[in-house]
Nucleic acid binder design. Structure first.
Lengths: 226, 226
DNA sequence: TTGCGCTAGTTTGCATCCAATATCCAACGA
DNA sequence: TCGTTGGATATTGGATGCAAACTAGCGCAA
């Protein structure tokens, strides 16, 4: 099992879907933008078919909306919906965390410690993009011991939606965010086996992120005049 | 709003996906069955392309697994995973219900009453298929006032997974199921505005269904020798 | 001037065709 | 006899072409 080096084979639609997803999440392709198969096919230097499948995929993920014979566009969420996404995240992540804590081993704690340390580095270096990725990894690591594959999948799907908004505002969020100490505290509580306390803190953590983000998005949208 | 009758235009992949989904959920296409594009294309009298897109879609929904250049098969869940699905349902549905109760109006209650009455009829008539559909509608009606579109979408996806197992065992489940009185009780508690009580009952309701189903699936699988 | 209808152009949707990859089986060598 | 390698076959993946649907722009009539 040691030397296994499987070459993760990806089909074209998969590659294109991943790239497009990244472009949407990063904001390069903005909310509401119209999507044309031919244009994208040209860009990627492939035929329209793999592009179509990629678009279908993103549609299934909820990032694109699609109408028969009329093309598609990037989904734009209302403020209510953005709030809903975070509420869902809170609901599921707290559940995962509570289930994980009793199962966490020394290895799990160590992995979390490492990620925390890395986050501190990226924090100090002001490397926003890296911090975002690490933040994601850290949360995932906290829930790992819950050993809930399907729930994880569902969470990933949901988090994908929120990621788009988080990323856009990450640079602003970071500064005013008390998340830094909270991340440490979450791990401490988990190590103490305080399920209730850890769950409550995580919920506050996520819901506060929600409120801060909603405020920012609301401000931005009112400035843009929609 | 009254006379709107939009002729939901469906593309071929959509139609095929819907039909295939139904065939999988009904058990006509069993767990683990291999899927071949050409065979299906022949059956539906279309080319392989719309079939491919339909399969991709079902793959995204988690009903099929797919490997590049190797075809696909109907996903088979472990007992643990089936349990997980119901835990997720409980988590989300209870949340929805609790949010819905304060918002429920006379219209909502009436709609629920109607569905309850219909369920009694199908119950008496032993019309299992119809009862299953009504059960689904009833639960949806209970959460309607929560007004959470995205959460509903997520729930539908998850419920889809469990539906497959519920349907297979519906005829058996029905007889020993105390769900009949519980459904009435859920509505009563909602009308009294007892959020905590209603939430708790709904959770018990779903988790008991989970346990009963797991027992049945376990028995069936051991009989089949896998 | 305004509203309707027709036509041209663009874009999507599906089918057919070709290429690439996996599976299976037989032949060869140890 | 068993394991490995090579080729034949079947199945999926992707490109191209054509038909159908939607959009827009122009002309005509009220």
């Amino acid at each position: 099992m040691a030397g296994r080096r499987l070459v993760q084979k990806q089909s074209l639609p998969e590659i294109i879907a991943n790239d497009l997803r990244e472009r949407i999440l990063s904001g390069e392709i903005p909310e509401g933008a119209a999507i044309q198969q031919e244009v994208l096919a040209e860009e990627y230097g492939v035929s329209r078919m793999p592009v179509r499948e990629a678009l279908k995929r993103l549609n299934a993920e909820g990032l694109l909306s699609w109408e028969t014979n009329r093309g598609g566009s990037v989904v734009k969420h209302s403020l209510n919906e953005i709030g809903e996404i975070f509420d869902l995240r809170a609901l599921i992540e707290v559940d995962l965390f509570r289930r994980a804590i009793p199962n966490m081993t020394a290895t799990d704690f160590m992995r979390c410690e490492e990620l925390l340390a890395e986050m501190e580095v990226s924090y100090a270096a002001n490397d926003v993009a890296r911090w975002g990725q690490l933040n994601h990894d850290y949360h995932t690591a906290l829930y790992r011991a819950a050993n809930r594959r399907l729930t994880d999948d569902v969470l990933i799907r949901i988090a994908l939606q929120s990621d788009r908004y988080v990323r856009i505002h990450l640079s602003v969020m970071k500064q005013r965010d008390p998340a830094r100490e909270e991340h440490r505290k979450l791990l401490d509580l988990a190590q103490q086996g305080d399920v209730a306390g850890a769950g409550a803190l995580l919920e506050r953590h996520i819901l506060r992120t929600r409120d801060a983000l909603l405020e920012l998005v609301a401000k931005q949208r009112s400035q843009m005049g929609d």
